[in-house]
Design a protein around this nucleic acid. Structure first.
Lengths: 336, 336
DNA sequence: TTCGCCAATCGAAGCGCTTCGACAATCTTG
DNA sequence: CAAGATTGTCGAAGCGCTTCGATTGGCGAA
């Protein structure tokens, strides 16, 4: 193993000079710097991470807590993780992978042992125990998703309110005058993630603003429930021509139900969804949708964390703007 | 932060005694040990990971290189990663996540900086540049999958030969006398992963042994290719009643094609596959299949690595036995 | 010419831990 | 009952790096 003293001897300088060349924390003359850099290259010197962490009080490692719970969209989670790793590397950091099954204790452990400089916690739920822990941990952290009380934390997520709005506005622009939201199962609104409510809020606000008739229907994750909701929608809202779906599992059965009830998509009924692109694109009728921008969320989370590590103040909430992909499940309202 | 000297003072012993209590590397009297353990608990002492890595020349961290390349089954890869982390934790190790985009250099970096004690590399291909690198790295490593030349390396994978055999034997047991293998796209056999060939070998060997008529057909990953293969099979092998599919993307179109050609599954034709359980189970006709046992592969990889870290010799190749899940796509051969 | 100043570099002191050799104290054994 | 072996503990020396204060030499100002 090549040590800093080996480089120093090779370059004819002291170890501290080598350190300063590498860190740039003190001015070094061009000539010396070049000589040191050349020695580093030639000897293939790589600072010992443990020694560096010990002396410098910085490990250049981030912890990433990934979710396991059922209901998680695995490819999305993975894309997110990859973008975190990639961005962290660009900032000279490595990523320690934590899974849920060690529980919140795992977070405390990697902080207490000084393994990590900061933490990124994915899939934060409304009733999550981790935010409270993070507040007391004394290390910078960034959350993906919003807990019940985001006070004093840094959170990143898709702007679900804006997503709900964007769906309605898209339909309104196409001339639709009566819209409905098919949402998540009822229990999600009670104790689940905050984003469900935010979609409802955006949906309703945009509909009211545009003077569209609107209705919201939670929906269980079963084909039967989808069928029931479809029938109910047509019964209760006769002029309905636009539907927003925020429940990927019922998307397909819902479309089937509508077509069996005699409505063609998009000729008679326009549908937009908030769901992963893969789901929207792989349906029999590809659906115009807004996806969770996993790459962007990951990148932003790391960048926010880096700024916190630098001591810079960052906003508590970062909401990423929704981006809609049109896929042909929406069309201008047919004039009767 | 609580240091080892704090614990030592609290327990009335020297720091080295605390260290020996924690590591168990020297005998300590019961009485002293209990006093130290009590102090550790009360003060919430957690050894500084960097200091430990520096002094002990062991970081207790593993690197896990996850694949990104298209064609990877993400949920399977994720389950694998999770099982690696979980098992590593059980052995007191953490896991550093490496992605492909830093290239093989990333492996060298984490080894040179002494971040990791060992490496686990997923998704090893026949022409992979990493095995050569690993050989020269001077740290224990375990590969998932087999490179062209596994000499001197430790590799784990599903026993694809046995999987091919198991499929044929299952069909033979049901009375089928003529079977065909629909395999991966031709290019996979040329420069892809080694497992494709191994399936063919097992398939052929078992068929010959059981005196079944057999044929092997590579197949492109398109519905049209599936259709073409289906037609060709029926034309060239008139008595065919059993098909083994090792190509998840054409599984569905293939079944459609057979049914359109007038063959019912499983009444007229039995089908078994080697593919992820999710794929096999979610088809219109759930398919009897053999899956890659992701959890088991991950666990085994870590355990092998731990043994190498302990200096124990381990086998170069570990082949996990296939496990078949019956799902109703296979039936006894109808007697004409 | 002398003084102070700044830039560039060095030396030494730690960071918190493990480990090695030493040393009492206790226990065997002939 | 002395000599040696064993057991339990301590002190000190690092592990490889960063960082702080000190030092040096060259400079312009007095």
């Amino acid at each position: 193993m090549v040590r800093i003293t080996d480089v120093a001897r090779d370059a004819g300088v002291s170890p501290s000079t080598v350190s300063y060349v590498l860190s740039g924390k003190r001015p070094i003359s061009d000539e010396t710097r070049h000589r040191v850099e050349e020695s580093v290259r030639r000897l293939g010197y790589r600072p010992h991470a443990g020694a560096r962490a010990l002396a410098g009080r910085r490990s250049n490692v981030l912890a990433l807590a990934v979710p396991l719970r059922p209901g998680i969209d695995v490819p999305v989670a993975m894309r997110f993780a990859v973008s975190v790793v990639t961005t962290a590397r660009r900032h000279g950091h490595d990523v320690l992978l934590l899974t849920q099954d060690e529980g919140p204790e795992g977070l405390r452990r990697v902080v207490d042992t000084a393994w990590v400089d900061g933490l990124i916690v994915m899939d934060v739920q409304l009733d999550d125990p981790r935010p409270a822990l993070l507040r007391g941990l004394g290390r910078p952290s960034v959350l993906i998703g919003f807990p019940a009380d985001p006070e004093g934390l840094t959170c990143v997520d898709l702007d679900f309110t804006a997503a709900g709005e964007a769906c309605v506005e898209h339909l309104a622009r196409l001339g639709h005058r009566a819209v409905a939201l098919v949402g998540s199962p009822p229990e999600v609104y009670v104790r689940g993630t905050a984003f469900a409510q935010r979609v409802v809020r955006g949906f309703t606000a945009a509909a009211d603003r545009g003077r569209l008739a609107s209705a919201v229907h939670p929906c269980e994750a079963s084909p039967e429930a989808a069928r029931a909701v479809a029938e109910r929608l047509l019964r209760e809202q006769p002029g309905l021509t636009g539907v927003v779906v925020h429940n990927e599992t019922v998307l397909e059965p819902l479309i089937d139900a509508f077509e069996e009830l005699g409505l063609r998509v998009p000729a008679d009924l326009s549908i937009t969804a908030i769901c992963p692109d893969e789901v929207a694109a792989s349906l029999r009728v590809p659906v115009t949708s807004i996806a969770l921008p996993a790459d962007e969320v990951g990148t932003r989370a790391v960048e926010l964390l880096m700024r916190k590590l630098d001591g810079t103040a960052v906003p508590e909430a970062t909401l990423l703007p929704p981006r809609m992909t049109e896929r042909g499940s929406t069309a201008p309202r047919a004039v009767a």
